[in-house]
Structures are given as C-alpha cells and as structure tokens.
Design a protein around this nucleic acid. Sequence first.
DNA 1: GATGAATGAGTCTTCATTCAT
DNA 2: AATGAATGAAGACTCATTCAT
Lengths: 213, 213, 213, 213
Amino acid sequence: MSRMGEVVVHKELKELKETRRNQILFFAKQVFSQKGYHNASVSDIIESAGIARGTFYLYFTSKRDIFDSLLDEVLKELRQRIRPIDLSPGAPDPLAQVKANIGRVLEFLVHDPELTKILLHQAVGLDERSAAMLQAFYDRVLSLIERSLEHGIRMGLVRPCQTRIVASCILGTMKEVADQLTTHREDLPPLEIVVEELFNFGLRGVFARSATS
Amino acid sequence: MSRMGEVVVHKELKELKETRRNQILFFAKQVFSQKGYHNASVSDIIESAGIARGTFYLYFTSKRDIFDSLLDEVLKELRQRIRPIDLSPGAPDPLAQVKANIGRVLEFLVHDPELTKILLHQAVGLDERSAAMLQAFYDRVLSLIERSLEHGIRMGLVRPCQTRIVASCILGTMKEVADQLTTHREDLPPLEIVVEELFNFGLRGVFARSATS
Amino acid sequence: MSRMGEVVVHKELKELKETRRNQILFFAKQVFSQKGYHNASVSDIIESAGIARGTFYLYFTSKRDIFDSLLDEVLKELRQRIRPIDLSPGAPDPLAQVKANIGRVLEFLVHDPELTKILLHQAVGLDERSAAMLQAFYDRVLSLIERSLEHGIRMGLVRPCQTRIVASCILGTMKEVADQLTTHREDLPPLEIVVEELFNFGLRGVFARSATS
Amino acid sequence: MSRMGEVVVHKELKELKETRRNQILFFAKQVFSQKGYHNASVSDIIESAGIARGTFYLYFTSKRDIFDSLLDEVLKELRQRIRPIDLSPGAPDPLAQVKANIGRVLEFLVHDPELTKILLHQAVGLDERSAAMLQAFYDRVLSLIERSLEHGIRMGLVRPCQTRIVASCILGTMKEVADQLTTHREDLPPLEIVVEELFNFGLRGVFARSATS
DNA sequence: GATGAATGAGTCTTCATTCAT
DNA sequence: AATGAATGAAGACTCATTCAT
C-alpha cells in the first residue's frame, strides 16, 4: 500500500464513479431527449440505466441537477467549437474561419442529436433557470457574431446594417438548420453541402443579382 | 318576445359566454406565457381570472384543452397573415409581397408577446401532441417558402440553391428575430426597421460585395 | 274566478306539478337502474328528462331524495302486494294465498324491471340510510313469513323448523328468482310456471320422495 | 451467498412485501365492508392502515384495483369450497356432499363477515366490471347446481322440475342465509343447525307431509 | 457504495348544489 | 316555475426525494 498505490486506487475509484455518473448521464440524455424534462420521470432514467433509485441520488442531487448537467455539456462543447474570428495578420481567411465555425457546430449537433434536441427543444421554456443558462449562452454567441459583423463592416467586407438584428438572423438560421438536421436527418444532403448553403445564405442571401446594387 | 328580441337575447347570451371564455383565455395566456405549461397550474389560472374551479371546466375540458386553444389561436392568426406570393400579372411586386408577409407576421407577434412566447417557448418540446401541431404549421410555412424560392429561381430572381435548406434559414431568421423582439423589446429599433433588416438579410446576406461574384 | 274555479286551477297546477315530478321520476328510474346511484349523475337525469338543472331541485331536494322516492315507490307497492295469510274461517286456502302473494310480487317486479334493479342492485350497499329502509322492509317481510310458518306449524301444515332461518330461505328464493327474471328475462318460462316452481320448491324442496304423502 | 441463502432472502423479501400488501388489504377490507366502495376513500384506507398515500399506490394501481383484489379473494375461496358432487362408485353419499358444500361455504362467510359484506352488498350494483365478475361466478355456481339437479332427477333422487329456476332458488337461499348470518350474527343458532335447516329446506321444503319418506 | 420501500406535497378533475334572472 | 352559469368541496393519483439496511 504505497502512496503510489493509494493514488492509483483513488484514481480508479474516481474513474469508476465518473464511469457510473457518465453511464447515468448517457441514459438520461436518451430519456430527456425523447420525452422532454417533465414527461421524463426519474423512474424512466433509472430503469433505462438499470440502477436503483437511491443510486441516482448518489450522483445527482435532483432530477433538475442531471438535466442541467446535460445542458451544461452541450453549451460547454458548443462554446469550445465557436471561436472568435482571428483577424491578426497571417490568420486564415476570415470567411473560412466563419465557415469552419459553422462546420464545427453543426458537426457536433448532428453527431449528438439527443443533446441537440435537449438544447433546442427541451431546455426551451422550461423555467427561469434554464432560460438564464440559454440566454447567457446565446447572448455570448450573439455578441461574438455582432462583433464580427462590426469588424467586417469596418473592413468593408460586410455591408452596414443593424448588427444586433442581423446577428439574430444568423443565430436563427443556425438553430433552425440544426433542428432540421436532427429531426429530419434522413432526407437532407450531406453536412458539407448544408454548411455551404448556410454560409452562402448568410453571406449573399437569396437574391440572384444581389450583387449589382 | 318578438323574433327580433330573441335574436338579440341569443346574441347577448352568446357574447356573454364568449366573454367569459375569452376572459379565462386571456388570463391563461398570461399564466402559461410566464410559467410555461407544466409550472402553471389550473389554480394559477383560476386565481388570476378570479373564477371558481368548476367554472374553468365549464369552458374547457382540461388544462391541456385551454393550452391548445391558445396555441390554435396563434397558429390560426399566423396562417392568415402568411400569404402565398401572387405572381399573376398585375399583382404587386413579389419582393414587396414578401416584405408585407414579414411585416404582418412580426406585427402580430410583437402585438401579442404572450402568445409569441407560448408559440416559441412553451409549446416547444411539450409533447407529441404539440410537436405535431407545430410541425404541421411549420411544414406548411416551409413549403410555402420553398415554393416561392423555386418560382424565384425559375424567374431568375433567386439564385439557384438547396431550397429546403434556404427555406429553413429564412424560417429560422423569422423565429429568432420574433423571439428577440418579444423578449428584449426595449432595446430594439422600431418594427419597420426590423422588417427592413430581416428582408435585406434574407435577400442579400451580409456580404458587402456579394454582388460581384 | 269563483272559489270553484280556483280550486280547479289549484288542482290542475298540482297535477301539472305531479306530472312534472313524475316525469323526472320516470327518467331517473331509467338512469339509476342502468348506471347505479353513484355512476348516475344529476346531469344524466336532467338530460334524459329534458329539463334544466334548477328545475330538478324544484321537485327534489337532492340526488338522494329522488333515489329515495324511487326506492319508496317499490317498497310501498310491494308492501301492498304482500298480504298476510288470512286464516279466518271462509278465507281461501292458505296455500293458495301464499301462491297469490308470490304471483303478485313477481308480477310487479317483472312488470317494472328498472325498479326491481334499483331494489335488488342499486339500493344494496349504498349507505346506512338505504340499508335502514331495506332492512325495515325485509324485516317486515321476514316477520310475516315467520308468523305464517308458526301458524302453519301449529296447524300441522308446516313441519317444525327454525322459522327465522326458513323465512330467510324463502325470502332468498324470492329475491334470486326476481333477479333472474329481470336480468335474464329472455330465456325463462312464463311467469305462472315460475310462480308454480317457486311455490313447489318452498313447499316440497327438491327431494323426489318428499312428495309421496 | 449460497443458493440456499439466496432463496431464503428472496423468500423473506417476498414475505415482507406480501405482508405489507396484506396489511393494506386487511384494512381496506374493513373500510370497504363498512362504508362501501364509493363512500370509502383512499384516505380512509391509508389512515386506517397507517401508511402514506404513495405506499398505497406501491401495492395497488388504483382504488378499484384493491377492491377487485378483495372481490377476487372471496370468489376464489368460494370456488375452492364449492365442489361438484362426486357420483363415482365409492364416493360419499351425494346428499352428504351437498351438505358439506353448504357447510364449507357458510363456514368461510361467517368466518370473514367483512368479505361477505363486500360480496353480498358492496360489489352488487357497483358497475359493469363487478357485475361481470359476479355473474361469471354465480353462473358457474348455478350451472353446478343445475347439473347436480339433473343428475339427481336421472337417478330418481330429485323430483322433476325446472332446474334453472330451482337452482336459482337454492342459490338465493344460500345468499340470504349468509347475509343474515353475517349481519345479525348475534341472535342466530350455531352454524351446524343453520346448515341443517338450509339443507332440509332445500330438500324437503316446508310442507309437513312432505316428510313421510 | 448500492438499494428500493416509504413518503406526502401537489394537481387535475368531477359533480351536487345554489341563486340571480 | 324554469333556467343554467357559477360554485367549491372532495377525491384520485403522481412522482421527486429520503433513509434505513
């Protein structure tokens, strides 16, 4: 029982706990995603996870707690995938960076449709708490977009506009397309095409000659 | 006694009933809008409406029934305000028609922010039932947009694109902007400006020289 | 407006009231008979009677009141049809009187199966109140039978027995046969045959040689 | 750890659960027997059983479920106690078998007057469901009696008669006597006497000279 | 750590009765 | 007399959470 050994044991235990915790999170994700927060019961979760009722409360303080953990998970991942446009000399083309952002976000959402559903459907209108979490996240995203637009305007890349509103527009396109991608996945084109279309729409709109003006 | 009189009486009675029903709907709208479907109790509704418990069930068969009535109300009104683009000779400029659609929709949503919140927040992720109602509505809207885009492409007005995806983008901008308008009403420009920006974004995107390509 | 006239008017009014009251009783009988006391609502009664809610309470003080009226009706009628055996000289044959009693009772019950169902099914186990009404009635009947048996024993017509128990037996046969007659009316022999069988069973039992005398 | 041990543990657990369930059944029996199905509330049951509301629904799915369980219990027990008359050579005297049936049935009913009341009072006229359960049971009993009568007739033991009606008579005597035994237990003779009287009544009726055999 | 029996606050819904018109 | 809108007490059932083993 060297110190080393103890450390190892502790690590294993922690991992075991993490494993258990993640196991529960995994099943809770399925359940919440499918039934929504209110229609999903703790019973649903422990049954699908194959654990006892008490065990659930060993890892999560409440039903709300585990839901928040999942919501945190999406938001954290998305925050990492959305990167400010780097305008420093030598940085990649700003538009390429924008497209990369779109790609990283959609890639994740398509890859984990359950989390997407939780973000776009179940966390919406749940209560003040989730509203605050979502607002904090979306406000951050909106600010990022807005600042990028302002930069772009200054650089002459973006036409002058009400940046807040246009930022909302851009956020809206992302949300709706992500929703379509996860709920009607079957009859949609491959991801790269979707990213391309989204990018083009945000850049050029739908007008054929939008150029000339 | 006269037939005339009877008609009047019947009309008054009907109005009285309608009044009561509408009174309850009015307060339920506030309650659902603020608390969401699940966190709102029938007690909340009858207390704010100042009626007895039994009275509620005189006009609505269940808590769900009154929620659906409200959801129906928004959807019905929006359906009326979204009109297909008339391309017949002598019809107004198609783009003006599009802008008018945007204006009519946003006008209503801004005018009744509680209903908007019910549509955009509370009905989302509620259950299969509301999902079906929303999907039916949004599918209709998406098809309308898609068909307009196809027409536009054929007429050379709209650049060729994946119409389904672009339609989603447009729907997304509407949703998100409506959401911003109703939840952060204070610091937003007047409605006409918002409509203009939305229209321009959808038409031309954000690119300054999107023309040239 | 003579006194005579007034009297007439009053009489008419009273009859009208009686008529109305009886109308409601008629429909309530159907409703209670079919659904039972608890599963029948005042709404069921007024709907089938085609009257307003308030009107109901003009003629009956409560749901219980109208049920009791119906129960009273059966019990009163049955009391009239069950007559003590007249043993005075010159009276008809006692056994014939017994058979006549059986006949009168079954005749009424078969003729009004709804009331029978109320008596044998719905009033049973309702509450203390109806229990008391039924007990008073059945106790009376039992006493009547018991006294007849005692008379019969004294006269050597009836074999010595525990009169209370045998009285219960006789009452039980009446109840059960009445029940069968009203719920499975279709596949049963004509009333006279049933009366005959009932009478014979009470008199001679089922034993083949008990008859030999 | 051993298989033996596990079996024991399982048995203990099962018994513990059975105990709780039976505890609730016991108190529910008292409550239903006294108040009837409709006048008894789940609150009445849990209060008298000294358990929490939720505990009730851990063992029974509904108020109706626990009532049906009790009804099932009586019917099942009675079914076991009513045995077809064995006419094979070497079997006991058919009449003795009949008397034994009567004895077994009455013994149980007198021993558990609450269940008897539920059978004879509370389950009667409750609704379609209980009507079906009772009808199935009584139909079975009636058929059994009828077949015995037919056998008896063929063997010359029973006088020819309308077997269906006479079967009803016999069932009726059982019901009524059981009712008397359980509701006016005090002033009735000992069970054997009652059985004897019932048997004699069914066999020989009340007629004095029917006895000569 | 794991279990699952027990808890009880919270909610929806029903329906007999009243009363102003 | 007749009406029927309004009332509110009562009752069944759910489910997140606890805690003794």
